[in-house]
Design a protein around this nucleic acid. Sequence first.
RNA 1: GCGGGUGUGGUGUAGUUUGGUAACACGAAGCCCUGCCACGGCUUUGCCCCGGGUUCAAAUCCCGGCACCCGCACCA
Length: 529
Amino acid sequence: MIAMDVYEKLMAMAKRRGIIYPSYEIYGGEAGFYDYGPIGSMLKNNIENLWRDFYVMRERFMEISTPVITPYRVLKASGHVDKFIDEIATCKKCGASFKVEELKDGKCPLCGGEVERGVLNLMFETSIGAKKQDKAFLRPETAQGIFVNFPLLQHFARKKLPFGVVQIGKGFRNEVSPRQGVLRLREFSMAEAEIFFHPDRKMHPGFDKVKEKRLKLLPEGFEREEIFTLRKAIEKGIIQNEAMAYYIALTHDFLVSIGVDKEKIRFRQHERDELAHYANDCWDAEILMQRFGWVECVGIADRSAYDLKAHMNSTGVNMMLTDESKKVKKKILKPKMDAIGKEFRKNAPMVIEAIKNADYGDDIHVEIDGKKITIDERFYEVEEVEEYEKFIPHVIEPSYGIDRITYAVLEHNYREVEKEGESYVILSLPSKIAPVKAGVFPLVSKDGLPEIAKEIEEMLRENGIMAVYDDKGSIGRRYARMDEIGTPFCITVDYQSKEDGTVTVRYRDTTEQERVKIEELVEWLSEKI
RNA sequence: GCGGGUGUGGUGUAGUUUGGUAACACGAAGCCCUGCCACGGCUUUGCCCCGGGUUCAAAUCCCGGCACCCGCACCA
């Protein structure tokens, strides 16, 4: 028999244990969609909450929540309508598909056959309103909801840069052919942070703490990954700025803390022709998976001023900030009203306007009654003023694919051990993301032990510790069930519990046990999760 | 989207060649047993991906669809 790979075993287990299901399965399923079951939902929530811990708590970013449905004009302005497409040509003769640019004289580059062209926009289209039918899309990223709120958000942040805004939510991409299970979904969860910087100051106060961190980097043009300290990567110009380096480090720490194997993480810089239409630099966190190789799970992109500029141009709403540290001297022209009025009479407003629109050093002309008249210094004075520089903030965006990361966590923590000739599955999840923190069992289902165990389970839940009571089957079977969903602790009530008020607590990964007093359980567990 | 493969209880499989409506293991539920790692007994549950065709009769043959897997292409 051919051994199943981890993917197959994991997905079968995931279905059995309420982690991941194919969506709409009773209707035959729908490619590109998966459900999270009861255990999977808790796992995903825990991962998202830990992400909040990193980005909202520690980085002090602000979380917002904006609609999935996005009006046409927003995504037109952002470039998604025009750029988020695939122009595809399919050869009628040999069936091969190509990008339009790859065609030779409009023919198939392989066999020279006639091709059929098609344009695919990867966004799901919908409409708003029953009668008006305004065109709209399901968002392809959560980021735009943040950018369009920039004026309000920067006011809320009291104009201090840098500041970050995050959003966790669904994104939608109508993939041409979704494959690889939960790794390529049409509807997926993403956690994105948009961090706004002064263009010349992409720095982070935390950089010093992480600069000696050694990470596996695969910079553009490199054949294979190499280990660099972040300090060195910055010095060599491999990573463009400290902020980018800092978020690479933060991403690494986050992934490791939720249980991704740190040996299986690398950061790969996009090749220039691979960059998204909005990005001028991007580093992906890639995670090594047994079946799929290196998989992009996080993209950390420098979007420059692209998006804010796009929305500013499209709406006229000001997206610029003032740099109060940078004064620029500027000569401005002030019209001399009395001279202008006497000379030009009813044409005066036109002259005033022309002066206001001119820069120092320009020749100023107006046309009156078909005659071109030069406005000289009799009509204005030059004044030197100092004003602050204005700029459109730049954005660095760490964007996390939660589903891919969740799968990676499952795969990297899936362990099989031999137990009496049978294979035994343990999901060695870090306690803090484990869906269930404790299983609570009576050693035997009699003599009042179940009652004590039920009380303990209730006590744990009341104290915010997710616990599950189970008295079905043998004790070993109950341990096994909990091991498979990654429950770090199992509490067993035995006869000694009745005498001295202690229970055994079993560690998932070692199966070792220790006795803990029932009244100290909450504290004991809280410390360890 | 193209080509190939696959689709049988919740899971993993046998049965498909040669047509006669399904079996095994594990699981799950109930009862009993049970003094710590998938114990045992009894009982129960539950499957031929969907639609059409051929046939007296289809899990089995044919056509179409869907899903999954592999390769090609695509993947901001």
